[in-house]
Simulated scan of single mutants.
Amino acid sequence: MDELARRSFVAAVLGAVFFGGPAVAQNTTAGGVTRVALKGYDPVSYFTDGVPQQGSAEFTFAFDDTTYWFKSAEHRTTFAADPEHYAPQFDGFCAVLLSRGRKVEADPEAWTINNGKLYVFSGKRGVLSFNERPIDIAQRAGENLKQLR
């Protein structure tokens, strides 16, 4: 989604959230199935609680072609105010495997916050690998994500 369209979408959803409209827009993959990032874990909880907390389908928000679940309306509002800060990098796919050209869903329990950004991995070993070369891995993962979309 281009930057202008994404910002317009975020503004529309914020308006709906704050003025009584539908809670959230849904998104779908090519197969018609909604993709929920982080296996339903609340991305804000990584920052506020220091541990991942399971979200609820009751509190959702769509951003960057991905739906996020939250444990509370407060966390959803926090995310909606600054999704670039709270959303996991690379749409919640494993940063290490993405740097190697593979798009794999991450384990929400394998994570780190580096330079104020949330990164998730397919397993705990990914955290160790990432921490050894965060700039290199993040740069390659970003390049590969563009190609794999």
Rank of each mutant, 00 (worst) to 15 (best):
F59Y: 10
T60W: 04
F61P: 01
A62Q: 11
A62G: 11
D65W: 08
T66K: 10
Y68N: 00
Y68E: 01
Y68D: 00
W69M: 09
W69C: 07
F70R: 00
K71V: 06
A73L: 09
H75I: 04
T77Q: 14
T77W: 10
A80W: 00
D82C: 03
D82E: 08
P83C: 05
E84L: 13
E84C: 11
H85N: 12
Y86D: 09
Y86S: 10
Y86K: 09
A87E: 10
A87Y: 04
P88F: 07
P88K: 03
P88M: 12
D91R: 14
G92I: 08
C94I: 09
C94Y: 09
A95Q: 08
V96R: 01
V96C: 07
L98A: 08
S99V: 06
S99W: 05
S99L: 05
R100W: 09
R102Q: 15
V104Q: 03
V104C: 03
D107Q: 00
D107G: 00
P108R: 01
E109A: 15
A110V: 04
W111N: 02
W111V: 03
Y119E: 12
Y119I: 12
S122N: 13
G123N: 15
K124H: 10
R125H: 13
G126N: 03
G126D: 04
G126E: 04
V127M: 11
V127N: 10
L128W: 11
L128S: 14
S129E: 15
F130I: 03
N131C: 06
E132R: 15
R133A: 13
R133I: 03
P134D: 00
I135R: 14
I137C: 01
I137L: 01
